[in-house]
């Protein structure tokens, strides 16, 4: 059941991310729903599930863009590793924590992809537009991640799936 829910949420996030028109005011940044889902799993699931969530969201994101396979998956995996390392120290259910990790994740992922994709020609933008777009991604991550986390949590609770709570050290 949990796997089915994960696949459904993956589809929902992929659909929202690719069909949503780009936000002109944020330099054409797309709302990073897949990253939001990855942050949700990293904050609130057991480590193996968080890992699979990061890998799957990254792979789907790569498949739905011209990015070489594995780039987004590597970025999401590193972000999940960082969140898993610090999550015992933060309020994982609070929207501010989710927003902060969403913004941080969006900024680092967008920056990493910018450098990784430079040889393929994706970084040949005017410098001002690059900075503006990075800021746009950060704001989009800040806004979308708490929403993605709330939706995913609501859906799991609605279906009666238990929520994993990590014991604090």
């Amino acid at each position: 059941m949990r796997t089915l829910v994960t696949l459904f949420m993956l589809w929902l996030a992929a659909g929202l991310q690719t069909i949503w028109p780009p936000w002109a005011v944020l330099a054409g940044a797309r709302p990073p729903w897949l990253l939001g889902l990855s942050v949700y799993y990293a904050l609130s699931a057991r480590p193996p599930r968080a890992l699979v969530g990061a890998l799957l969201t990254g792979l789907v994101q790569d498949a739905l863009s011209a990015t070489p396979m594995g780039y987004s998956a590597a970025c999401h995996l590193l972000l999940a590793a960082f969140i898993l390392r610090v999550r015992a120290e933060v309020f994982v259910r609070h929207w501010a924590t989710q927003a902060l990790f969403g913004a941080l994740g969006a900024l680092t992922t967008a920056t990493a992809l910018l450098f990784l994709l430079a040889p393929a020609g994706a970084a040949h933008w005017p410098p001002g537009l690059v900075l503006w777009r990075l800021a746009g991604w950060t704001v989009a991550g800040l806004l979308v991640t708490p929403l993605a986390c709330a939706l995913a949590l609501r859906l799991e609770r609605l279906l009666g799936l238990g929520v994993y709570v990590e014991a604090r050290p």
Partner: peptide
């Protein structure tokens, strides 16, 4: 048009 680029560094659609 069924989708736009998911990453945002490409100006592309599907």
């Amino acid at each position: 048009v069924i989708a736009r680029d998911a990453v945002g560094w490409w100006e592309a659609l599907r």
